[in-house]
């Protein structure tokens, strides 16, 4: 145990650099996936056939490709088409696109759960599609969307470790590098696991808070 604490003092500062990158990747891809997911979802419920079909196709393609392959594609293949991204940019974009499919399905479920009468009432006071979404549907859908959204956040935090496969030195990769150079596997990976857990706990509490709030309604 004492050895573990000794190792911890030595490795934590290095691992914290990885933690920082993990947070950057998670937050960046969370924002991107939210925006893209909302766009896909709004296209899907727009009632315009081309947009609906395009959105459905996009979501299926994205869902059907493993995240790791998507990351490789963006980081290693795109340069062939003249788009060279840094590893961090590629990771955020890749994870953001990958998760936009799940965000979209969650948003769509929330939007479609709103009673049709609400939309009709908005229409009868002269609201157009966008105003109806913004003032009537989305504010009500948020309550339904938030609990699953919290779970997606936790999954994204953990899946940010996949960025290590394209050389982003986030927490998992940082851990692997230290472990392979010091052979202190037990100490290092225990620390890495504890750090992920520490970052997850606030999110888990947030999900519980959302769920309580949704149930109270």
């Amino acid at each position: 145990m004492q050895k573990f604490f000794h190792d911890a003092v030595e490795f934590v500062p290095i691992l914290l650099q990885g933690v920082w990158l993990t947070i950057v990747v998670t937050v960046g891809s969370l924002l991107l996936s939210t925006v893209l997911g909302l766009v896909w979802a709004l296209m899907r419920v727009s009632g315009i056939r081309i947009l609906t079909g395009l959105s459905a196709a996009l979501i299926n393609v994205i869902r059907g490709i493993p995240i790791i392959v998507l990351l490789f594609y963006i980081y290693f293949v795109m340069p062939d088409f003249g788009i060279a991204l840094s590893a961090l940019q590629a990771a955020i974009i890749g994870l953001g696109i990958a998760y936009s499919a799940y965000q979209a399905e969650n948003f769509r479920a929330g939007i479609e759960a709103i009673d049709k009468g609400q939309i009709e009432a908005a229409q009868t006071i002269g609201m157009g599609w966008w105003l109806t979404m913004r003032r009537v549907v989305l504010p009500q859908a948020v309550r339904i969307i938030l609990p699953p959204y919290g779970n997606i956040m936790i999954m994204m935090l953990k899946d940010s470790s996949q960025a290590s496969t394209i050389t982003v030195a986030e927490l998992a990769l940082q851990g692997k590098l230290i472990a392979s150079s010091t052979f202190k596997n037990t100490s290092v990976f225990t620390l890495v696991a504890l750090m992920y857990l520490t970052m997850s706990i606030p999110l888990i509490l947030l999900v519980r808070h959302f769920e309580n709030k949704a149930n109270r309604k």
């Binding site: 009673d115 009468g117 609400q118 009709e120 009432a121 908005a122 229409q123 009868t124 006071i125 002269g126 157009g128 009537v136 504010p139 009500q140």
Partner: peptide, 19 residues
């Protein structure tokens, strides 16, 4: 849209905005 602002509607199930 212009017609709807001139002809309002009241529904059987009220359809008020609950939020």
């Amino acid at each position: 849209v212009a017609i709807r602002t001139q002809v309002s509607m009241v529904f059987q199930r009220f359809n008020l905005f609950p939020h």
